[in-house]
Nucleic acid binder design. Sequence first.
DNA 1: TTCATCATAGCAAACGTTTGTTAAATATGC
DNA 2: GCATATTTAACAAACGTTTGCTATGATGAA
Lengths: 334, 334
Amino acid sequence: MIPISITIKDVARELGVSYSSISRALNGKEGVSKETRDKILEMAEKMGYQPNDLARGLVNKISKTVGVIVPDINNPFFGEIVAGITDASSENEYNIFLCVSGWSVKREKEYFNTLIQKRVDGIILKSVGDYSDYENIKSPLMIIERYDRNQNYDSVEVDNEFGGYLATKHLLECGYRNLGFISGREDDSACKRRLRGAKKALEEYGLSLNTDLVIEGSFSIEGGRMAAKQLFGKGHPIDAIFGMNDLIALGSLQYCDESGISVPDEVGVVGFDNISYAGLPQIRLTTVHQPKYELGKMLFATLLEEIHNKEEKKPTKKIILNPELKIRKTTRTK
Amino acid sequence: MIPISITIKDVARELGVSYSSISRALNGKEGVSKETRDKILEMAEKMGYQPNDLARGLVNKISKTVGVIVPDINNPFFGEIVAGITDASSENEYNIFLCVSGWSVKREKEYFNTLIQKRVDGIILKSVGDYSDYENIKSPLMIIERYDRNQNYDSVEVDNEFGGYLATKHLLECGYRNLGFISGREDDSACKRRLRGAKKALEEYGLSLNTDLVIEGSFSIEGGRMAAKQLFGKGHPIDAIFGMNDLIALGSLQYCDESGISVPDEVGVVGFDNISYAGLPQIRLTTVHQPKYELGKMLFATLLEEIHNKEEKKPTKKIILNPELKIRKTTRTK
DNA sequence: TTCATCATAGCAAACGTTTGTTAAATATGC
DNA sequence: GCATATTTAACAAACGTTTGCTATGATGAA
């Protein structure tokens, strides 16, 4: 531990007052005269006193600390959410423990446990497995992309089903008819809901979702590339790809480039998230926008409410944001 | 705080043993018989006991926690460094506090302070201002991109001067002669050293560094775009841009696209960092590669050594990694 | 003057651990 | 069988805070 030798007692000794007075002065509580308060503040400053938050946390039962578990910090979707979370937390004098699970259920569980041991005030996490493990945890807890209108936990998320619907409908409107879908993880809740929306759009066009054309890849550029390869290798005619996030879409684009498939003429591609690189002039990926940074801010704000209202049972709060289709140049104009 | 009501004392009471035995059993220390140890472990497990790291830290004076302060988590350079740090820390049963300063010296200082209060065992930071403020801090501390062979602190970094030299020399070899430079922040240590390398390369070609053609932008795509605009607005003939990181280079590319300047024919562009997006087929940015993830791992490893050897004064350790030029399609073939 | 009121400040317990010291119980050596 | 060594377990202090309670002294009212 970074050696801060001087404690409240040292300041007390120096001044010849009791250390309870120091505590009260430092925390702006009453019970100290203005005179001694000033004297204490000045001396604490002069001696370079830094309160020990471990001790504070121990007695207050509040650590001013929250844990954040995400699968991949270099996926801009999570990167921006985390940026929103850190900004919101610092505005509220909170610090965050960043945990990166690397899409491993085991590591996620381990992290969850150590966060408990660190006595964080709350946890925000993107669950890699199915999140039923967290079903009966009563602690302040926000699960990213968990949504179920029948359950009574708070949630903040984009309407994924609607996003999936928008993306698919757009492809169909452009005239594409043989759609392939590349998901990130089989049991990812957001993917599932996006696919549900896709199905709806297909049905509106009298088509149905061919599960043979739903490939499970991974949420990365390389994962998208490989999945696209697999998709085209199936022997079906494919003229459009809906990647469940922008990285997958980017990987699909890469595969098309390598294979001499022209986008958007032969094949249309749409992604999800609208990461900043998707808008680059060289890329101009058609995608579904999510307000990631704001999502992060709201996740933290909602968690903080849970932390503060731990006693009183407030009604559960479900914030749903609308996704927005960004039409760019990887889908042809109708 | 997440409510873990049960403590070591509860387990002790349940078993009718003293709580010091519990502690020793849990920590694998001697002084408990195998029999009672097993009994204790079993009961702790059964009761769902979770040790309180705040209390532990208080007595052990080790919090198993380090702070990381970076200016921008969505800059992939820092994103990958942080990924390296978190992986290394989790392998060593450490947790990290992530702090994002947003390029504000004030926030950086505030974060530094709260990390001290949280009693982290060490801090890894990218200093936004000049890092002289940290000169006489004796705590375990790794400053990203601080390097001075004359000072006795540990450091891990890529040879920035050599990287700048490589990039510039490449542009010159390609036949570009009117080079503009876009820096991120005026007093950024890494930029300064990259420019020093650039100057060296220019001089080898009988040219000198025209400070009028060194623009201070910011480390972002938009910052690069605006700086490029400014650069071309100066009235000098410009046929190449060396962006001090890939985001700046990407922004420059964007400006060229908007202005109908053809890359690499009319203007060559080289970046720095080699973020993953730079290699995309649509972009193929020529750039200088840094092993960011490895940098992060080594930063943590070196910090951990400092933490462990706090007493004994080990010789200072300076790890320097070689940058690597990646020639792609934003510079013309010679 | 006396008693009650009040502001100030000190004492000590508590938070949940770890660990040095001591006490009890068991084993060992002669 | 006794003294001694050794293992096992309990006690209590310590880590650096906060806070309820108590003590002190000053102030004010009757």
